[in-house]
Design a protein around this nucleic acid. Structure first.
Lengths: 212, 212
DNA sequence: TTATAATATGAATAACAAGTCACATGAATA
DNA sequence: TATTCATGTGACTTGTTATTCATATTATAA
């Protein structure tokens, strides 16, 4: 947790430090981001940095939590629209849309989250990130159970695996958005996401398939 | 490339160094693996290490290439079985099976490859890994084009996205295998992989779905 | 205005890990 | 056995970057 001193800072200064840190962490990842560079770009002294944060990981964890909070806002907002909805895929699409919007409007925060997700085992951030991942999967699981009860989805699926697959598909779409330079706007990412959703939804198999 | 000296080493000594390195790289990743530890566990002097390898990345690249070669063997072997096959999903399942078998029988090599894949942008290993990834995707693309021609798969899909999705689904299955302790044997991973394949193949949508 | 507390500073230090090198040992040949 | 070449050794050097700390500056209160 940043110190009292940091929170007491003038808004602009505070934001400058955070924004620069987010950008650097997003561009270079945790290890390759240097305090020296943050400090230089933010126009503060090294010593000041350590009056604001316990250490590098303190700043990083703060940003991570921020990213998670912001993303959760997008999800909440999107799900609110679906309050009376009973269709599983609408929900899943909503989750997807929220993720996409979050990434489009907070690309650097999205990159930081993606990095942590990909980092895998890591004493420092495992707990925070696994919790967060588990949350997403649990939500999908909950929906799946309801969808099965409603006969919307066939009952012989494995809930655990399926939930994980659907969660990963969401991550995969975001990944594509964060990496492929071609997909840089809503106009491109939405149709793309819809294609993926459609593939998983209806399957690739041609109903007019001839035997081969 | 390791030096002549390294290749001239007694088989046992050579293998010990490589096996220990693979295990450590798999457990800790590239950065966190220390030459000091490799050297200690392999019972050789630091100086010897640098007579065998130019530097840390030299050893790593050697292991990476080894992993890729071994994996390619599994794929070749599996595809050979399908030589006269005309079914896209059989091919894709074959690729999957090869990946799974490779991972089951070479878990640490699989972990190293997974790490590189997740590492993303990286001056050192980008070239080697991106090439390798592209190979996998290109193979699926090729199959997809044929499958569309044969009316096996509907023609309105986006080949690029679909190939990427299918490739990612393979990676996802392996990921699950490498991380979930529950899935530790063929008996568990095959049914699991089949479920995923089936989901993507036929879709989740219940054909007997009631309107909701 | 002066005293006190809070904040800022950046050169110095610590911690860590990669990579080097002068010397030691062993193997091969004459 | 003496000579030469190949290989082994680990303390030392180097490079890098996080973190500290003694001191300076600025804000607050009396």
């Amino acid at each position: 947790m940043p110190t009292e001193t940091f929170f007491n800072l003038a808004k602009e200064k505070k934001n400058k430090v955070i924004e620069i840190s987010i950008t650097l962490f997003a561009e270079r990842g945790y290890t390759k981001t240097q305090i020296t560079e943050i400090v230089k770009k933010a126009d503060i002294a090294k010593g000041s940095f350590y009056q604001y944060f316990d250490d590098k990981s303190d700043l990083y964890k703060y940003i991570l939590n921020k990213a998670i909070k912001v993303k959760e806002e997008y999800i909440k907002k999107e799900l609110k629209k679906l309050e009376e909805e009973r269709n599983f895929f609408r929900y899943w699409e909503g989750l997807n849309k929220a993720n996409i919007n979050f990434a489009l409007e907070n690309i650097n925060l999205a990159r930081v989250l993606r990095d942590v997700y990909k980092m895998g085992k890591n004493e420092l951030f495992e707990a925070i990130e696994k919790d967060y991942e588990k949350q997403g999967i649990d939500l999908i699981k909950k929906w799946l159970i309801i969808a099965i009860k409603n006969n919307e989805i066939k009952s012989n699926i494995n809930i655990k695996y399926t939930a994980h697959l659907l969660y990963t598909a969401n991550c995969f779409i975001i990944d594509y958005l964060l990496e492929d330079e071609e997909i840089d706007s809503q106009n491109k990412i939405y149709p793309y996401a819809n294609k993926i959703v459609e593939i998983i939804r209806n399957g690739l198999k041609n109903s007019r398939k001839k035997e081969g």
